[in-house]
Design a protein around this nucleic acid. Sequence first.
DNA 1: TAGCAAAACTAACACTTATTAGTTTTTTAA
DNA 2: TTAAAAAACTAATAAGTGTTAGTTTTGCTA
Lengths: 196, 196
Amino acid sequence: MAKIQTGKNNSKKDVIVKKAASLFKSKSYSASSMRELAEFVGVEASSLYNHIGSKSELLQEICFRTGNQFTEQIDKIKNEQRSNIEKIEAVIRFHIQTMAENFDEVYVSNHEWKHMDEPYLSDFLNIRRSYEKSLMLLIETGIEQKEIKPVNPYVAVLTILSAVRGIEFWQRSKKNVTLQVLENDMVNQLLNGIVK
Amino acid sequence: MAKIQTGKNNSKKDVIVKKAASLFKSKSYSASSMRELAEFVGVEASSLYNHIGSKSELLQEICFRTGNQFTEQIDKIKNEQRSNIEKIEAVIRFHIQTMAENFDEVYVSNHEWKHMDEPYLSDFLNIRRSYEKSLMLLIETGIEQKEIKPVNPYVAVLTILSAVRGIEFWQRSKKNVTLQVLENDMVNQLLNGIVK
DNA sequence: TAGCAAAACTAACACTTATTAGTTTTTTAA
DNA sequence: TTAAAAAACTAATAAGTGTTAGTTTTGCTA
């Protein structure tokens, strides 16, 4: 009989969620079936239900784990004793690093949140909105304190968050760019531009 | 009997493709059914097949129309007599405008291309790669000619294209930012940064 | 080793899916 | 007005969906 293989510190549910993130990333949530997931996990579809409640619960799990991770981090950064520019830089770097480490989960959270049911969907959107607000406040304060040009804070947030999301297209290959270069250059372009 | 309503210059297939783009955008390709699309068009599901070949053909239509639009434009810009910075700026502005005008199609093309079958999938990826190469060449030439800082061109392309894609999150509402401000500020941040 | 709970299994459910076949209605053109 | 073509319809197909019920196997603890 097949069995779900758990490493240490991982419940069987954790294993399923991780595999689900990987599957949802490559095939999208709607196009992934529980039978596929089961095969991926190495077990029959119905056996999954001994550990999880439903397919949509998997998506919720993925989205909220990721969402909370980002929220916690920006709350921490907000309260540090540094310039606003430095704080914004820290946010950008955290994004890039988290995305590189937890690729599947972040990707799915960014792309598939739409398919959550209420009330989870609304909760998730609220978390995201409040995150964007926090970043916007950093920019607004930076402008007031003359660290930052008088740009539109909404557009700046949009530009930063979108750019950072884009490392999902980053090709991790030898001939391409390392994470360090990616991180440094992207931070630099977003803060100082590329024009000489 | 219900009928597909075509305006002038639009075939019935065009109408279906446009409605499909709108549906695929809001529900994703896989989660959209032909019955839903049919209802949206105002006709029975099977009637759609008098005008289109299959569901996946709709996706191909959307993705390639968009892809070709961008390719044509960058080819045009490449051959103009302007500085590289100006060319890059023109590319960014075209992206933002096209996205604002043809939101549904661009959105679907960006998000749902994965679900195309071969050989269309490969063709599409080739188109996209060659587009990225063109933009990368503009940046490399700009660096050689000392218009642009010696940044990593791959990262610059990634940053620009990702940022620009992000206007899909732009909330078109009165209290928010206009397209003009969005466009100008984003171009400015990507080229000159926000740090004073 | 016996008993029990956890976790696997098989089989089935009620629905939904894209698509096709065959038929009827509508529109176009002679 | 009539014949042909276009475009709608109804009905059905075969395959796939998430999930549940009931049963069997496994692994731990007394």
